[in-house]
Design a protein around this nucleic acid. Structure first.
Lengths: 185, 185
DNA sequence: GTATATATCTAACGTACGTTAGGTTACAAA
DNA sequence: TTTGTAACCTAACGTACGTTAGATATATAC
C-alpha cells in the first residue's frame, strides 16, 4: 500500500505518452515500467495485458473526454456552439490531447483492433443524427441545408485533427469564419 | 535471374499491404517474405533494411502518385478542378490508395520518422501558396476570400482522408455541393 | 569449359518482446 | 502474535524480431 492507485495512474499516464509517440507495437511494457520507475510486473499487477491497458485508455479515458466536452457546451447559438467546441478541445491539457489523439488514431484504424473501432463507429452513428437535429432548424433560409451539415461535420473533423493530431494552434476568429462560411451565416 | 525486378516489386507490393494493415512496427520482414513467397534474406537483397523499404515506398511511390494526380488536372473551372481531384483519388486502384493511406499516416506522424515528416511538410509548404494563387482570382466577389481558401483546404484534406484512410465512397454530386458551399459559388 | 555475376537459399546470430512464476516486504486485522 | 493481503520485486520462460554469414544454383561471357 505504498502508493496504491497512484502507481496505476502513473503507469497509464506514461503509457498514453508512449502509445502516442511510438504507437501500440512500438511501445513496450519494459519502457513503460522504466519511465514509470517501477518494475516490469507491476504493469501486469494493474493491467492484465498490454492490450487491456490500451483498451482501458480508449474505452474509459477517451470516451470520458468526449462526454465531458459535449456536456460543457450550451446550445444558445449554433456558431458559438461549434466554435466553443473546437476552442475547448484546443484548451485541453496535454495529457487529454494525447488521449484524444490516440482515439483519433483508432478511429482512422491506424491502431487498435476491430473491437475498439466498432465501439467508435457505434458512437459516431449515434452522434451524426444529433448534429442534423441541432443544426437544420437554424438553416431554414440557407440553400442546400443537408449539404451544409455534411460539410460542417467534415470541417469539424479536420479542425479537431489539426488541433489534437498535428498539435496546431488555431485562432478562434478564424475558426468562427470557417464555420460561418459553411453554415452560410 | 529467375524473376529479377519482378520479385522486388512483389516484395514492395506485399510490404505496402502489410504496413497498411499492421503499421510499421507491426509488420515483420518474415511475414513479408512469406506472403511474397520468397525467403527472408531476399528482402534484404533488394532493400537494405526494413526502414529503407518503408522510405522507398513513401519517397518514391507516394510522391509519384501526388505528382501524377496533380498533372492530370485541367485548370478550366475551379469547382471541376477540385471535384475531379477528389474523384480521381477515389478511382485510384487499391494499391495506390494504400500507398496514399501510408503517406497520410506519415503526414499525421502516426508512422515513419522525422525525416519523412520533414519531406512532407516541405511539400505542403510549397503547395499551399499555389492553392491561394489558383483560387483567389475566382473569389473576387465572394466575402472573406482568404478564409474560403483556408476552409477549402481543410475540407479537401478531410475528403481525401475519408477516401483513402476510411475507404469511404463519396458521391461526385455531393462532393461538388460541399466545395460549392465553401467557395460561395 | 572455366570464370563471373545474379538470384536465390538454409541457418544462425544477438537482442528484445509479452508474459509468468515465485518470492519479499509492510501493514492491518484477528 | 500470528495471519492475511496488498504492493512490490528479481529472474526467467518461450517466442519472435532485424539482420547477416555463407552456401548453392543458374545463366551469361570469355
Amino acid at each position: 500500500m505504498d502508493h496504491g492507485q497512484d502507481l496505476k495512474s502513473t503507469i497509464k499516464r506514461i503509457a498514453v505518452e508512449q502509445f502516442n509517440r511510438n504507437g501500440y507495437h512500438g511501445t513496450t511494457i519494459r519502457t513503460i515500467a522504466k519511465e514509470a520507475e517501477c518494475s516490469l510486473p507491476m504493469v501486469y499487477y494493474y493491467f492484465s495485458s498490454k492490450k487491456d491497458l490500451f483498451h482501458e485508455i480508449i474505452r474509459k479515458d477517451y470516451f470520458h473526454i468526449l462526454d465531458r466536452e459535449a456536456q460543457k457546451l450550451k446550445t444558445t447559438n449554433i456558431l458559438d456552439f461549434y466554435t466553443d467546441f473546437i476552442v475547448n478541445v484546443m484548451n485541453l491539457d496535454e495529457h487529454d490531447r494525447m488521449v484524444y489523439r490516440l482515439g483519433v488514431k483508432v478511429y482512422l484504424s491506424f491502431d487498435g483492433d476491430e473491437d475498439l473501432l466498432a465501439v467508435m463507429e457505434a458512437w459516431e452513428a449515434s452522434i451524426v443524427p444529433r448534429h442534423y437535429q441541432l443544426i437544420l432548424p437554424h438553416l431554414k433560409d440557407a440553400s442546400n441545408p443537408k449539404a451544409r451539415v455534411r460539410t460542417l461535420m467534415h470541417l469539424l473533423e479536420n479542425l479537431i485533427e489539426r488541433v489534437v493530431v498535428k498539435n496546431q494552434t488555431l485562432v478562434e476568429q478564424e475558426i468562427r469564419e470557417e464555420l460561418s462560411i459553411v453554415l452560410g451565416l
